[in-house]
Computed example of a mutant assay.
Amino acid sequence: MGSLGQHGSKGEIELRWYQGSFYWSRYKLILMNVRFESKSDIRPETLLVELMNFTMKETNYKRLCSTKTVSAVNDNFLGPTILVHKWDTFFANIHDRGKYGITIHWHGIRQLRNPWSDGLEKIMKCPVPSNTSFTQEIIFFIEEGTLWWHAHSDWSCTTIHGAIIILPALRTTYSFPKHYAEETIVPAKCYKGDVMTIIDEALTTGGDPKISDACTINGQPENLYDCSNIWNYISSTS
């Protein structure tokens, strides 16, 4: 797919892509100043490219004993989990099929020399309009561990969010002893009302927004609330 070479007195890194000069020059610019721990780390297989589609639209979901329409990604609430390795490049195809313009922010990811993919609405970029698409590029230069992604348009992040699991670079391991098991837990809030209406009313009146009706774990209300399915989730993963 490509080759990785070293050149220059300062050990600059260059990635050559055979598909065309556009990608060659693009990745050369991004990777020029990456510092690797040793020469053995400079391998083509340590730089992978991942791709995922994020289709956002209104979906009916039942929570807290009632059914409501929420904005969700790929018809799921909780959204998909992104699984990558350190140094990977991830492309997210954002397809907005909902009624609101939206952006996706990759929380905790340092978008070095790549701020236009950070997803901060009206700061780094405009929201993706309804019935259009946009591709964001996320480069995992230094991150390792668990972070999360979420919508960054008003309160749409309430139902549009998910986990990012960043494994160590290929042929490397975590800095701690091997663990026995792992599970991803994403806490959030749940509202019976329309979250966009709630924040609009608060901004109009200048008062505090309505507090949430429940807390959720991986998209399900905790077991203290009516109609909770959290134990179904726990039993399926234990």
Results as ranks from 00 to 15, higher is better:
M1S: 10
S3N: 01
Q6H: 09
K10Q: 13
K10D: 09
E14F: 03
R16G: 04
Y18G: 09
Y18F: 08
G20W: 05
Y23A: 15
Y23T: 09
W24F: 12
L29T: 05
L29I: 04
M32G: 01
N33A: 06
F36N: 10
F36L: 15
F36P: 04
K39F: 04
S40H: 10
S40I: 14
I42S: 10
P44G: 03
L47I: 07
L47E: 01
L51Y: 11
F54G: 08
T55H: 04
M56W: 06
E58A: 11
E58W: 01
T59A: 07
Y61I: 13
K62C: 08
C65S: 01
S66H: 11
T69P: 00
T69K: 04
T69N: 03
V70N: 14
N74D: 12
F77T: 02
F77Y: 15
G79L: 10
I82A: 13
L83S: 11
V84R: 02
H85K: 00
H85W: 00
W87M: 03
D88P: 04
N93Q: 10
N93Y: 05
H95Y: 06
G98N: 07
K99P: 00
G101V: 08
T103E: 14
W106C: 04
H107C: 11
L112N: 04
N114L: 12
N114V: 03
P115C: 02
D118W: 00
L120G: 08
E121H: 09
P127W: 01
S130P: 12
S130G: 10
N131S: 12
F140N: 03
F141G: 00
E144K: 07
G145Y: 01
A151Q: 05
A151L: 09
H152T: 12
H152Y: 15
S153E: 12
D154P: 05
S156I: 02
A163M: 15
A163S: 13
A163K: 14
A163H: 04
A163V: 12
I164K: 05
I165Y: 13
I165L: 11
P168Y: 07
A169V: 06
L170Y: 00
R171H: 06
R171D: 11
R171E: 12
F176A: 03
K178Y: 11
K178T: 08
H179K: 15
H179D: 07
Y180D: 15
A181R: 14
E183R: 15
V186H: 07
K189Y: 14
C190Y: 12
Y191T: 02
K192R: 15
G193Y: 14
V195L: 02
V195S: 01
V195Y: 03
I198Y: 11
I198T: 09
D200M: 05
E201I: 03
E201M: 04
E201W: 06
L203V: 07
T204A: 11
T204G: 02
G207S: 11
G207I: 12
P209Q: 00
D213S: 03
C215R: 03
C215L: 14
N218C: 13
G219P: 03
Q220M: 12
P221K: 08
E222Y: 13
Y225A: 08
D226E: 14
D226K: 06
C227F: 05
S228T: 09
W231Q: 14
N232Q: 02
N232H: 01
Y233I: 10
I234K: 13
S235V: 04
S235D: 08
S238N: 15
